[in-house]
């Protein structure tokens, strides 16, 4: 009678199978819907597997804004990720090595997570309106970088602190500059952590909705806003919505598999080391 068993008995197997079905079937249903013909997604009994199974609604979904949405999301997400990872890891290195104001950081991070979106959205909206930057890439890139930065600093600080100081000290003794020690010794050594952090930034910016909804409008329409917009019309184009939603989920699902090892740490802001 062991609590942590090796292997799976039949009861646990069925329990996991049923739970997995519950958590996966909505996603599978969405993918199946994306291949359905008109009339197939609104029938009773519901059609499970489309008889036509064409990519027609992918094409149409991309044509009515999906492609533009994915393009906008890519531009915003990649720029944001680059900015926040570069600035954030510089700051994290300083905090980890020279203890600049590092002790209050936990509270900063937590308080930003507490902030209701409207509390920061409203001033930002008025700020960008004043600068005539509403509905531009710059507004969203800047906003997402601001939101991501504390998170990047916090995660990267943890990774730098795990690195033994002696390696950089040896480089300094050998005549390397501090900047050199950072770029040539510390940075390459934390690169797995750096990649994980970058992927988290990517995930956040790619999935974000409310800031994109308010700060974008007609010229800048990230894919989340685009999908939500397709629901508002007279006739809801379910096949198109499902198709674009499926496309928008592909990068994230790939990330989930790459990130596995770092997920817990990233999601709990380092409070629990996975």
């Amino acid at each position: 009678m062991r609590y942590r068993k090796n292997g799976v008995n039949i009861l646990v197997f069925f329990g996991l199978a049923i739970l997995l079905l519950f958590f996966l079937s909505p996603i599978i249903w969405n993918v199946l819907t994306s291949f359905k013909d008109r009339g197939e997604y609104f029938t009773y009994p519901p059609v499970f597997i489309s008889s036509t199974f064409s990519f027609e609604y992918y094409q149409h979904g991309l044509a009515i804004g999906g492609a533009k949405g994915i393009q906008d999301s890519l531009i915003i997400t990649l720029s944001t990720t680059a900015i926040s990872v570069i600035l954030g890891s510089l700051a994290a290195y300083s905090i980890a090595r020279f203890r600049i104001g590092g002790d209050n950081f936990a509270f900063w991070i937590l308080s930003i997570r507490m902030l209701p979106p409207v509390a920061s959205l409203l001033p930002l909206f008025l700020f960008f309106r004043f600068l005539r930057l509403l509905d531009t890439y710059e507004a969203l890139i800047l906003t997402y970088s601001i939101i991501n930065l504390p998170f990047v600093v916090w995660l990267m600080k943890g990774f730098f602190e795990e690195l033994p100081k002696e390696l950089e000290e040896a480089a300094l003794v050998d005549g390397c500059s501090r900047l050199g020690a950072f770029t040539r010794i510390a940075l390459p050594l934390v690169s797995p952590g750096l990649v994980a952090t970058a992927l988290f930034c990517f995930m956040f910016s790619w999935n974000e909705f409310i800031f994109a909804l308010i700060l974008g409008r007609s010229r800048v329409v990230p894919v989340t806003v685009n999908i939500a917009g397709m629901i508002g019309g007279h006739e809801i184009l379910w096949a198109e919505i499902s198709a674009v939603a499926t496309l928008a989920s592909v990068p994230i699902i790939l990330l989930a598999f790459v990130l596995q090892r770092f997920l817990v740490r990233g999601l709990t802001l380092g409070a629990v080391k996975g």
């Binding site: 996991l16 739970l19 997995l20 958590f23 996966l24 909505p26 996603i27 249903w29 969405n30 819907t33 997604y41 995930m203 790619w206 999935n207 909705f209 989340t224 999908i227 939500a228 629901i231 379910w238 919505i241 499902s242 939603a245 928008a248 989920s249 994230i252 699902i253 990330l255 989930a256 598999f257 596995q260 997920l263």
Partner: peptide, 24 residues
């Protein structure tokens, strides 16, 4: 693999989650 499959609902965008449930 099983743990990662369990994680998919929270990884996909909440907007996608909303659309999926609206159909369901």
């Amino acid at each position: 693999l099983v743990s990662t499959l369990f994680l998919l609902p929270m990884m996909v965008s909440p907007v996608v989650v909303g659309c999926i449930w609206r159909i369901i």
